Simulated scan of single mutants.
Amino acid sequence: MSVIPGRPQMVPEEFEELARLAPRAVEGIRLEFLGGRLVVQPRPDGNHGRVVEWLVRRCLHVRPEQFLHSHGLKVQALRDGRAHPDGVLAPSEAFAGLGAWAEAEEVLMVFEVTDDDADADHRARVEKPRAYAEAGIPVYLLIDRDSAEAVVHSRPGGVRYETVRTFAFGKSVRLPDPVGIVLDTEPLKNWVR
Results as ranks from 00 to 15, higher is better:
Met1Ser: 14
Arg165Lys: 12
Leu188Met: 01
Pro44His: 12
Met1Gln: 06
Pro156Ser: 01
Glu149His: 02
Lys189Pro: 01
Gly97Tyr: 11
His84Pro: 00
His48Gly: 01
Pro138Phe: 03
Met1Phe: 08
Arg193Ser: 11
Pro156Phe: 00
Cys59Pro: 00
Ser70Ala: 15
Glu65His: 08
Val39His: 15
Asp86Leu: 12
Ser154Leu: 02
Glu162His: 09
Phe67Val: 09
Leu188Thr: 03
Val3Leu: 11
Val56Lys: 13
Arg57Gly: 08
Gly157Ala: 07
Gly35Lys: 01
Leu142Thr: 05
Glu186Trp: 02
Ala94Cys: 05
Arg63Phe: 14
Asn47Arg: 12
Gly87Lys: 01
Gly97Ile: 02
Leu188Lys: 05
Leu38Cys: 10
Cys59Lys: 00
Pro8Ala: 02
Ala133Lys: 04
Gly36Glu: 10
Leu183Asn: 05
Gly46Asn: 08
Ser70Cys: 08
Gly136Arg: 02
Arg145Val: 02
Leu142Asp: 09
Thr166Ser: 14
Leu108Gly: 13
Glu106Val: 04
Glu112Phe: 05
Leu108Trp: 06
Arg30Pro: 07
Asp45Cys: 10
Tyr132Ser: 14
Ala77Thr: 15
Met1Val: 11
Pro5Val: 02
Ser2Gly: 06
Lys171Asp: 15
Leu183Pro: 06
Asn190Ser: 14
Asp80Glu: 11
Arg79Gln: 03
Leu141Phe: 07
Gly36Ala: 09
Arg24Val: 05
Pro64Arg: 10
Gln41Met: 15
Arg82Asp: 12
Arg193Ala: 03
Pro91Ala: 13
His48Asn: 08
Pro156Val: 08
Leu141His: 01
Ala133His: 10
Gly99Tyr: 00
Ala100Ile: 07
Phe95Asn: 13
Val151His: 05
Thr114Ala: 05
Glu27Pro: 13
Arg50Phe: 01
Asp121Ser: 03
Phe33Tyr: 15
Ser147Gly: 01
Thr166Arg: 02
Cys59Ile: 13
Pro5Ser: 03
Val113Ala: 03
Tyr140Ala: 07
Arg145Ser: 00
Gly157Ser: 09
Arg130Val: 14
His122Cys: 08
Val26Cys: 12
Arg63Tyr: 14
Leu73Trp: 11
Leu183Trp: 12
Arg174Asn: 12
Glu127Leu: 15
Ala90Asp: 10
Arg79Ser: 13
Glu106Arg: 15
Tyr132Cys: 06
His61Val: 00
Val56His: 09
Glu149Leu: 02
Asp86Ala: 13
Leu18Ser: 09
Ala19Met: 06
Ala77Gly: 15
Gly99Ile: 09
Ile4Tyr: 07
Asp45Ala: 01
Arg37Gly: 09
Leu18Pro: 10
Val179His: 07
Glu93Ala: 01
Glu17Cys: 02
Val164His: 00
Val173Asp: 04
Asn190Pro: 00
Asp184Tyr: 05
Gly6Phe: 06
His48Gln: 07
Arg63Ile: 11
Lys74His: 11
Asp80Trp: 12
Ala96Val: 15
Thr163Met: 06
Arg125Trp: 09
Glu27Ile: 06
Glu16His: 01
His71Gly: 05
Asp117Ile: 08
Phe169Tyr: 08
Tyr140Gly: 05
Ala25Glu: 06
His122Glu: 11
Phe167Val: 10
Ala104Val: 02
Gln66Cys: 13
Arg165Pro: 04
Val3Ile: 11
Glu53Thr: 13
Leu142Val: 12
Leu89Gly: 14
Leu38Met: 13
Glu53Gln: 11
Pro176Glu: 04
Pro91Met: 05
Asp146Asn: 00
Arg43Gly: 06
Lys128Ala: 08
Glu16Asn: 07
